[in-house]
Design a protein around this nucleic acid. Structure first.
Length: 572
RNA sequence: GGGCCUGUAGCUCAAUUGGUUAGAGCAGAGCGCUCAUAACGCUUUGGUUGGGGGUUCGAGUCCCUCCGGGCCUACCA
């Protein structure tokens, strides 16, 4: 039995996430966690909301809430949606937790002790009307290059020229529109990533079989220009983790907080500590996942994230942990994803374009989304959601191939025999051939799941479902029943066992349907199959079952057209 | 501007890292079956692998070039 630590990129607190966010980290992480648990491994699956930063403050201001209250409320909303999608986190934490405050301050202190923190005085734009410093992109003005009037302080979206906020003509606050701006001096802490460059470079080089997407992004940052740059890890904000050096005040840093991207990945560790706290466990129980000197030496740590998060997970976070010179567990494998587009364009949170997690669950149960999204995960390139593809995939794979298989087998048995596993007959060549095929396909399925090749795993699982229909067609128990009822009984007995097998194999993808299948078969035996003949002889003659309700309904053309229109823009 | 990824059948994707005749699923066509959610099974039509050039006994794969799509570019997170 292995020990596997799994983290999903932290969803930002600022509003409900769309399906592209979901399929880029949380959903594949859940698939992997569920699979590994099913294989009997010890799994710790961690996620949390990422709650600090300017956007959270602005979102709270918009609703008139205190930012802490806003985050608490939105954490509840996101946790409920995660639950709705059956994301099986062992703990869903919050980056604003006390645990994260303490650990973040601790690590910053260690980095300072090791000479890896530098204090830098710099000039930043301050808005008197807003009473705050403004990040570059929250300053708008006219582009000196092309005259575009809504250029941002970091870059002009119109002519793509990179800008400094002071370049802008008639600069104003993007928050309030105020032009009462001034440049003020402010002091910040920088993490000296440059000092750790060779160490990180060697570490990246030592990683085998990481997705190209992961390593190419890391290498780019390591070697581009002057190489890995130092990074500011503090901000002039009210909402965040106060800058402290361990438990001590940090002279000159009063009123400042750590940058969200410094504290967010640390929350992976802190959330595991939150898990221990929530379950009344001692520190040793979370430390054995994260401290190689306290039992984490045999842990395999896998991270899931969208490609935009890769630099922070390959460079900044490892630099933080390495630079602490404490024995923290580093990631072993980073699974990164491209983007899911929506119907010819991008999902857009700001424009309300596409399907959001709450809306998705209002329309259809989680399994429908889980199956389609995972079987189309953007692994090798960006992929696209269209209602036509979604309808076709769900109807064919789930309703016709899997759902209908369960339906035809259970209903035939009920009408010709009884609502129990029939006795009589023996396994013949057709059954042997099926088991042989399944043994091969299950092995391939397992290999794809181990390698986190999600689309390939989905495609193999689907082929496993299809094999049941092929077998039924060849065995034709409805015909055999008329001349040789024992033969039909043997076929149906095997087919009922196939339903149980399918439930076990499919559960990582479609947990609710799998549970319904097991419930229908009235069995709690969810053992992962070893020998196929044994696995398909689990439900014995006389074992009672019930015909499950329709597992998956079909999406009609009318629904598809309606949704296509409903989700074209501006969510209502 | 620079870097990276990507382009394969109408659609979504494969192709053991240069090796027989480029494969699946969906959609389309034909046949079969009648247990089942008008479901299932079998057969089958679709490809100058974005265009052009090159290396090689051999190129979807390597090189050059052009065209299209996307991402990143360090103060949004």
């Amino acid at each position: 039995m292995a020990r596997i630590l799994i983290t999903s990129a932290l969803p930002y607190i600022n509003g409900i996430k769309h399906l592209g966010n979901l399929v880029g980290s949380q959903l594949p992480a859940d698939l992997y966690a569920r699979y590994m648990r099913a294989r009997g491994h010890e799994v710790m699956f961690i996620c949390a909301t990422d709650e600090h930063g300017t956007p959270a403050e602005l979102a709270a201001a918009k609703t008139g809430e205190d930012v802490a209250d806003y985050c608490a409320r939105m954490h509840g909303v996101q946790a409920a949606l995660a639950d709705g999608f059956r994301l099986s986190f062992d703990h869903y934490g919050r980056s604003s937790s006390q645990r994260n405050h303490t650990l973040t301050q601790h690590l910053a202190g260690k980095l300072a002790e090791n000479g890896l923190i530098e204090e830098v005085t710099e000039k930043q734009v301050y808005s008197r009307a807003d009473g705050r410093f403004l990040p570059d992109r929250y300053i708008e003005g006219t582009c000196p290059n092309c005259g575009y009037e809504k250029a941002r302080g970091d870059q002009c979206e119109n002519c793509t020229k990179q800008l400094d906020p002071t370049d802008l003509i008639d600069p104003r606050s993007a928050i309030s529109g105020s032009t009462d701006l001034e440049v003020r001096e402010t002091k910040h802490l920088y993490l000296r990533q440059s000092a750790l460059k060779d160490e990180i470079d060697a570490w990246i080089d030592s990683q085998k079989d990481w997705p190209v997407l992961t390593t190419s992004i890391a290498k780019k940052w390591l070697h581009d220009g002057d190489g890995l740059k130092d990074r500011g890890i503090t901000r002039d904000l009210n909402w965040g983790i106060p800058v402290k050096r361990g438990g001590d005040d940090w002279p000159g840093m009063e009123g400042k907080v750590f940058y969200v991207w410094f504290d967010a990945p640390i929350e992976y560790i802190a959330a595991t500590a939150e898990w221990a706290d929530a379950n009344g466990r001692p520190d040793a129980d979370w430390q054995r996942w994260w401290r190689t000197d306290k039992g984490a030496g045999d842990v395999r740590y896998v991270q899931f994230m969208g490609k935009d998060n890769v630099p922070f997970h390959t460079l900044s976070f490892p630099a933080t942990l390495m630079g602490s010179r404490e024995p923290w567990k580093l990631v072993d494998y980073i699974k990164s994803f491209n983007y899911l587009n929506y119907d010819g364009g991008q999902f857009s949170t700001s424009q309300g374009r596409g399907v959001f997690m709450d809306q998705a669950l209002d329309i259809l149960p989680a399994d429908y989304w889980r199956w389609w999204l995972l079987s189309h995960a953007p692994e090798s390139s960006d992929s696209e959601f269209t209602w036509e593809n979604f309808q076709a995939g769900v109807n064919k794979d789930l309703a016709d191939v899997l759902g209908n298989f369960v339906s035809r087998v259970t209903k035939f048995c009920r009408s010709k025999f009884a609502e129990e596993v029939p006795a009589g007959g023996t396994m013949g060549p057709a059954e042997e051939a099926l088991m042989s095929e399944l043994a091969g396909r299950v092995a391939a399925y397992e290999a794809h799941m181990e390698a986190i090749d999600i689309r390939k795993a989905a495609s193999e699982l689907r082929a496993i479902w299809v094999a049941g229909n092929e077998y039924l067609q060849a065995a034709a128990p409805w015909a055999a029943f008329k001349t040789d009822p024992d033969r039909a009984a043997a076929s149906i007995r095997l087919s009922l066992n196939l339903i149980r097998l399918y439930a076990v194999l499919s559960r990582p993808f479609i947990p609710d349907a799998a549970a319904a299948m097991l419930a229908g078969m009235q069995t709690g035996d969810d053992a992962w199959p070893g020998d196929m003949a044994t696995a398909l002889d689990t439900l014995k003659p006389g074992h009672a079952f019930t015909v499950p309700d329709m597992l998956f309904r079909k999406i009609t053309d009318e629904e598809r057209e309606g949704w296509h229109a409903d989700f074209a823009g501006e969510r209502g």
